[in-house]
């Protein structure tokens, strides 16, 4: 039998925004274990769950549309359903004709119950178990950004200047090296909500071959257009992913 790959859509909510991606992944793995999902394991000395995560969020950023893929052990699924369906399905029919809903509903219920507050299950989809990465299908992210430090008006003019540039180069300091990246190239659109208070804007940022930039970097670069905002005081939420 083919392994079954389930795509889990979840939110990284406001209250868990300060968790690192590693901690989010750890919590999801623990919830899968707690929910008794029949997750396929890697071979080897210390087997690990076959799960993958996409477009990780940094500490401080919340996300409305996050994804994790889980490979299920096909043999385990039958046991899982049997255990969960006891009583729900009438005795005679159990195990003969199992509809998709009979698989996904108990999986969803069990996972929902095991997730900590702040991480919420939004959907489950069965996807082809292919090696082609979901990451490469992510075309852009839409962020909502809030700042109390400047007015929407000041924000609008700085953003307009930013968008008027052909390129906005920024130096990214990484351990051991400094890279120069053109932020402008990644920013597809910026919409400031007129008269919003705190000043709010939406920013659509491209992903190219799995590479993207953070809204905080764009905000940092606005200093050269006369807008000085401490990125540590900005509230950033990723509200949507655009898929191919």
């Amino acid at each position: 039998m083919l392994p079954m790959r389930v795509r889990v859509r979840y939110t990284k909510g406001d209250t868990v925004r300060f968790l690192s991606h590693l901690d989010i992944a750890r919590n999801l793995r623990m919830a899968l274990a707690g929910a008794k999902w029949p997750v396929a394991m890697t071979q080897g000395y210390s087997p690990k769950m076959k799960v993958s995560f996409y477009a990780p969020l940094p500490v401080g950023t919340a996300g409305d549309e996050e994804y994790m893929d889980v490979v299920l052990d096909t043999k385990g699924i039958a046991d899982f359903i049997r255990a969960k369906a006891q009583g729900a399905l009438s005795g005679g029919n159990a195990g003969r004709h199992v509809r998709l809903a009979h698989v996904l509903t108990p999986l969803a219920q069990a996972l929902s119950a095991a997730l900590p507050k702040g991480i919420a299950l939004k959907g489950l989809y069965i996807v082809p178990d292919s090696k082609s990465s979901f990451e490469s299908q992510i075309r852009a992210s839409l962020y909502r950004v809030e700042t109390e430090e400047v007015t929407a008006e000041a924000l609008s003019s700085a953003m307009a200047e930013f968008l008027a540039q052909a390129q906005v180069l920024s130096e990214l300091r990484r351990p051991g090296q400094t890279k120069t990246v053109d932020l402008r190239k990644f920013v597809e659109s910026i919409d400031v909500v007129p008269n919003s208070c705190p000043a709010t804007f939406f920013m659509k940022i491209r992903h190219e071959n799995g590479r993207t930039v953070r809204p905080q970097w764009v905000i940092d670069s606005l200093a050269r257009f006369g807008m000085d905002v401490d990125t540590a005081e900005v509230i950033v939420d990723r509200i949507k992913l655009y898929l191919e």
């Binding site: 868990v16 300060f18 968790l19 690192s20 507050k117 109390e148 540590a232 005081e233």
Partner: peptide, 15 residues
């Protein structure tokens, strides 16, 4: 609005 300034902010957010 301010926890972004400290190391390991999840130390202070519970949940």
């Amino acid at each position: 609005r301010h926890l972004g300034k400290v190391e390991k902010p999840a130390r202070y957010t519970g949940g």
